[in-house]
């Protein structure tokens, strides 16, 4: 019996040792740096202002003027993303109307496999106010480990410019307030 317990403990230890290797293999694992993603600075003035960016060209997500950035990987072709669009809009409005969160927490969407036209169609259809970015050739999607949609990433940006993933989860929220509470708590903001 004693021998069995020892073997069991060794095997459990091995299992737990392998676990971080599994999670670490995901490019979006919590605690890791965000993969190097370059996005085009939006043309819309209100989106530039929201992100704290100016001019033309590209930017990297940690350059967004915020302490926390929520990244939604979605697709206009994904039924779940379509159904959840009003909840995500509510999530955005809750941030923007909160004295404590406005300016500190920002949200962006990246449309996996979606062209400019498709992103624009989704924006108009669901009256999305936060910036959406196309990823027509799936290049960003590949960098994020080809996650399913909708996928949410929470990024904490420190004062020294370092950014760490604190939330990485498949599936969107059913309740905007609960989702916001959970993210704020996890972010340590």
């Amino acid at each position: 019996m004693k021998k069995t317990s020892i073997i069991l403990c060794i095997l459990l230890f091995l299992a737990l040792s392998i676990y971080p290797v599994y999670s670490y293999n995901s490019p979006l694992a919590e605690g890791k740096k965000l993969p190097d993603i370059e996005l085009t600075i939006p043309k819309k003035q209100e989106h530039q202002q929201y992100l704290g960016l100016t001019g033309e060209g590209t930017f990297k997500i940690p350059q967004i003027k915020a302490k926390v950035v929520i990244i939604q990987i979605f697709s206009m072709y994904c039924p779940h993303c379509q159904r959840e669009a009003p909840t995500i809009n509510e999530f955005y409005r809750k941030i923007e109307t909160s004295k404590n969160l406005k300016g500190k927490v920002k949200i962006i969407g990246i449309g996996a496999g979606n062209s400019d036209f498709e992103i624009d169609f989704f924006r108009k259809k669901y009256e999305v106010l936060f910036p959406l970015f196309p990823d027509g050739d799936f290049s960003i999607h590949k960098k994020t480990g080809e996650v399913r949609t909708p996928y949410f990433i929470g990024l904490r940006i420190m004062d020294n410019g370092k950014a760490t993933i604190f939330y990485s989860q498949l599936g969107g929220p059913k309740n905007a307030q609960q989702f916001l509470n959970k993210l704020i708590q996890r972010s340590g903001l």
Binding site: L8, L11, A15, I18, Y22, S23, H80, S168, Q169, L170
Partner: peptide
Amino acid sequence: FIITIFFAVLGLLSGSAFGLSE
């Protein structure tokens, strides 16, 4: 029994690393 427990635990842990799926 031990080997079964080992793989069961491993399976549970590795699955959670990828979150829920639709």
